[in-house]
Design a protein around this nucleic acid. Sequence first.
DNA 1: AAGGCGATTGCCT
DNA 2: GGCAATCGCCTTT
Length: 207
Amino acid sequence: MLSSKPFSRKFYSQASPIVAQRLLGSHLHRVIDGEQLIGRIVETEAYGIGDEACHAFRGKTPRNAIMFGEGGFSYVYFTYGMHHCFNVTANQEGMAEAVLIRAVEPVEGIEKMQVLRWGGGGAAHHALQKRDLTNGPGKLCQAFGLTRSDNGIDLIESEELFITSARPVAPNLIGVSSRIGINVAKHYPWRFFIKGNEFVSRGKPSS
DNA sequence: AAGGCGATTGCCT
DNA sequence: GGCAATCGCCTTT
C-alpha cells in the first residue's frame, strides 16, 4: 500500500463538499475485535449550512450535537429502526456540516466484514456477491461494526477509527449527482463517486 | 404524551 | 419496481 497518513484537522475543517470530494480514494481504517479492516472510500455525500436535508438544519439536538464541533469527528446515527449511517464532521466549530460515507471498496479484512454482515454461515451464501458487502451506507456500517457507540470519535486521535490519505482520484474520474434518499433540498450536486467503481451504490433515482 | 417519518435494505411480485 | 421492517428522534398537541 502506498505510504499514507491520517488526514489533519485542517483538512476536515474545509467545507463539506470539498471534504467529500477529497475523501474519494482515501482509506477508512477500523480496528474491531483485534482485527484491522480497511475500505477504500468510493462514494460520499456532503451536507452543509443552509441545507434543509442536513440533520443540523433546525438547530442543535442531542443526536446531531457532534456536528456543531470541530471537523474530523465521527457522526454515527441510527435510522429506519435497523440501520446505521457513518459520517465525518466537516468545517469549523459552530459550522455544522458532515460528509456521509455511502460506499467503500473492501481492501483488507474482507473475511471479518463478511462475518459482521452475514455471520459465519451466511458468508458462503453471499460469496458470489462481494459487492453487497459495502455498497451502501447501512451496509458498510454493518461490515465495519459501526454503531451509535462509535459516535463522537476524534478521527485524528483515534487508532481504531481513522481515515488515511491516498493518491487523489483524477478529476475526470469523479462523478457528481444530486443526493440519494432524501425528500428535501434535492438539487444540491453534493453526491460524489468514483466513476465505474462496482461498489458505488445504485440507490434510487433522486429526482 | 403521541404520532409521523427517516441521509436504507432486502424480499416479494 | 413496490413495499414492509422497526424504533428512536423530533415536532406537535
